[in-house]
Design a protein around this nucleic acid. Structure first.
Length: 519
RNA sequence: GCCGCGUUGGUCAAUCGGUUAAGACGCCUCCCUUUCACGGAGGAAUGAGGGGUUCGACUCCCCUACGCGGUACCA
């Protein structure tokens, strides 16, 4: 029987979830769904010093916003819980395996203090080797159960001396594995240090925890960021010693998302510096109180956010760029994931959002747009009041009319705002140079005509307008611009008669009168 | 320093030994539109460098350069 496909996303609750993190979630999620498997969320909170309150909830909320919700996790439960490593530690899960490794001779006790380790690095640092590691060579000079007399080790243990458990890396061995993206990857154990497996506080490090939990949770595929590639040999050895290499999940190390300018991984600071979001949602650091803006609050549609992330490192080979989540699930495959990192391009990101706004009916996002209009100041007239609190149908009609002009949700405020609140500033400079008494007379006549108009449809309004301008011998174009500025305040927006028809008779006349009075 | 992973236009990228080296974003020109957009047509712009292998390399191999990642009792 083929193995059940099970993937996990395993973040540390240390802060906001950024682009790269969400993309890792997405690829795990897509692969799981593509193969009718399970998608699990596991919280790796083994570093108590870096734990940030609220970060875990933030992760749940971000996944929910993106529509990438796990089948199992701390907040939804599941058959493989608990899903927080701090809780699993309390159950003694990790310690048991760490002891087993010591008993088997694959790991050992190390009693070195932080100060001693620092001293060691300082002492053995040279120009050729700026960062000496605790490895097969240097461990001989340290205080551990491999090189201390047996009775001394016993004495230290009995005395309750704090210790860590380190993996014992034997030199000169080749470790290889097949990465789903990179193919065969080979390491020599010479370059790998004796990683700490169990910390002095009893918590496992990532290295031990990831192997133990992936096994216990029956994970079949593990996709993570490329920054983990160098520690893969440790994980492979652990799998070999503990559970058997044949049970190891298939690994894939995802390319990094890079800064748009310069070089390096995209970080939270780049967003502020370059003026675009890097987090899924707004994230306020509880310690500093600083808020980093999110894609959600910037006005991205979750569908667009997921879509653009998917394309950052993957494509289906056909040239298609716009995908729904369902389509992504349908066509996603790991062998089309890139090896090289991708620089994030905010302009392209906005293009994705624009495409999604154009593509979706306004009913799909009107609830997301409404809040942006709520800081509308008090209205002055009855007609305006009615516009300020439009019914859903009217509101969506307006959004559909202007959506092709909007890249981000807040753009609707400018593009649709004049429908609900009369403009307060007018581009009169575009009218005045060509303004004349004759035109004024025309508009006065237009108002009179409008007052007696029986229908209020765009087409009829336009026909009537042209008829009148012809009668006066004025080119319609010379009258259209002023009319637009009267209704909108500036030169943008859909057809003027579409606007007038939505504004309604009373409001349209009111706006024409107003501008006439200040001209 | 050492180890690992990368390198096609400004950016995202197709190509899986033979193409005039797609497409998209952005930029520019024109058309449509008596506004702004949308839409349409077109344009500028790419295989890091050097060796091989081959009848033939963007594609395979080696070297160099460059970039990135790692080198913690952080993940």
């Amino acid at each position: 029987m083929p193995r059940k496909v099970r993937l996990r996303f395993a973040p540390s609750p240390t802060g906001g979830l950024h682009l790269g993190g969400v993309r890792t979630v997405l690829y795990n999620y897509l692969y799981a769904r593509r193969h009718a498997g399970d998608f699990i969320l596991r919280i790796e909170d083994t570093d108590q010093s870096r734990y940030v309150p609220g970060a875990e909830q933030y992760i749940f909320d971000s996944l929910a916003w993106c529509g990438l919700e796990p089948d199992e996790g701390p907040h939804v439960g599941g058959a493989y819980g608990p899903y927080r490593q701090s809780e699993r530690k309390a159950l003694g899960i990790y310690e048991k395996y760490a002891r087993q490794l010591v008993d088997q001779g694959y790991a050992y006790y190390a009693f070195d203090t932080t100060e001693e380790l620092e001293a060691m690095r300082e002492k053995y640092k040279t120009a050729e080797n700026p960062s000496p590691t605790y490895n097969f060579d240097l461990r001989r000079k340290m205080r551990n159960s491999l090189h201390l007399p047996a009775d001394e080790t016993q004495r230290l243990l009995a005395a309750g001396t704090p210790y860590t458990i380190r993996i014992r890396m034997e030199p000169n061995q080749e470790i290889r594995f097949t990465d789903m993206i990179r193919g065969e990857v080979v390491f020599s154990t010479d370059g790998v240090d004796d990683k700490v497996l169990l910390k002095a506080d009893g918590m496992p490090t990532y290295h031990l925890a990831v192997v133990v939990d992936d096994h216990l949770m029956d994970i079949s595929h593990a996709f993570r960021g490329e920054e983990w590639l160098p520690s893969a040999p440790v994980h492979i050895l652990l799998w070999t010693h503990l559970f058997g290499i044949e049970k190891m999940p298939q690994w894939a190390h995802l390319p990094l998302i890079l800064k748009p300018d310069g070089h390096g991984k995209l970080s939270k600071r780049d967003g502020d510096r370059l003026g675009f979001p890097v987090f899924a949602m707004n994230w306020t650091d509880p310690k500093t109180g600083e808020t980093a803006t999110g894609f959600r609050e910037t006005g991205f549609l979750p569908q667009a956010f997921v879509n653009l992330l998917a394309m950052l490192g993957w494509n289906d080979g056909t040239g298609q760029e716009l995908f729904t989540l369902e389509e992504l699930i349908e066509s996603f495959s790991m062998d089309r994931v890139h090896k090289g990192g991708a620089k994030f391009d905010y302009e392209k990101a906005k293009w994705f959002n624009h495409e999604w706004i154009k593509w979706l009916p306004a009913s799909a996002f009107s609830e997301l747009v409404r809040p942006y209009f709520h800081e509308n100041p008090a209205t002055e007239t009855l007609a305006e009041a009615a516009l300020a609190e439009p019914d859903e149908e009217q509101f969506e009609k307006v959004l559909d009319l202007v959506k092709e002009r909007c890249h981000l949700l807040p753009d609707f405020v400018l593009q649709a705002g004049y429908f609900f609140k009369a403009p307060t500033t007018f581009d009169l400079d575009s009218i005045r140079p060509k303004w004349s008494e004759e035109k004024k007379v025309f508009f006065v006549g237009l108002i009179r005509q409008m007052e007696s108009e029986t229908t209020w449809e765009a087409a009829a309004l336009e026909a009537q307008f042209k008829e009148m301008s012809a009668a006066k011998g004025i080119k319609p174009g010379d009258l259209l611009a002023p009319l637009r500025i009267m209704l909108v305040g500036a030169k943008f927006g859909p057809g003027v008669f579409d606007i007038a028809s939505i504004l309604g008779r009373e409001e349209t006349i009111r706006r024409i009168r107003h501008v006439l009075s200040i001209l």
